[in-house]
Write a protein that binds this DNA or RNA. Structure first.
Length: 190
DNA sequence: GTTGCGATAGTCT
DNA sequence: GACTATCGCAACG
């Protein structure tokens, strides 16, 4: 299992694009399953019309405006859940969508949950990784700086960061806020 | 390997 | 009542 230090709240108390870039290579861990973060997207506050927080605080978006270092989990397309990490100081909206991971630990459990054998089918998409790790709507609002859902610092290995437009949105579709570990075989899309 | 489409339900207008 | 920050499978080449 990974043993790096858990990222603290100050790590998340910055703008979403900075956190999205800096969290690449870190390890997301939940209940014995873990994966290295290889793909993220930043969602900003008010001027980012693609963000759920763009139209202010609602029952659903409340946690995005809260303390950084918490999980924002939402339900989409009638069958999938996606995991975000809340950034920016309390009162300011901003979050990072975790889009893809490289399998690190708990691989047999993840295979069983996904009903797929191939490592590249386990965590290569926002809906897939929540299913593989066992993350549900019950995790909405939980603290990720301590508990059974945490992010740890990576092993320090070097990689090249790529920037592209975000996937699956129509507003602000040309903003380069998707960050990837270039060349990783575990991305949701190259 | 690539493209196209249907499934399915919460959230907001 | 419209619209999704998606996925998997079927039909092609």
């Amino acid at each position: 299992m990974p043993d790096g230090p858990i990222l603290d709240r100050d790590f998340y108390r910055r703008d979403a694009a900075t956190v999205a870039r800096n969290i690449l290579g870190c390890v997301l861990e939940h209940d014995g399953c873990a994966g290295r973060i290889v793909e993220t997207e930043a969602y900003l506050g008010k001027e980012d019309l693609a963000a759920h927080s763009a139209r202010g605080i609602t029952p659903r978006t409340r946690v995005i405006f809260g303390e950084p270092g918490h999980a924002y989990v939402y339900f989409i397309y009638g069958m999938h859940t996606c995991l975000n990490l809340v950034c920016e100081p309390a009162g300011t909206a901003g979050c990072v969508l975790i889009r893809a991971l490289e399998p690190v630990a708990g691989i047999e459990t993840m295979r069983a949950r996904r009903r797929k054998e191939n490592l590249r089918d386990l965590l290569s998409g926002p809906g897939k990784l929540t299913q593989a790790l066992g993350i549900t709507l019950a995790h909405n609002g939980v603290d990720v700086t301590g508990g059974n859902l945490v992010v740890r610092l990576g092993d320090g290995s070097k990689f090249k960061i790529g920037m592209t437009p975000r996937i699956g949105i129509s507003e602000c579709a040309d903003w380069p806020l998707r960050f990837v570990i270039e060349g990783s075989p575990f991305l949701s899309r190259p």
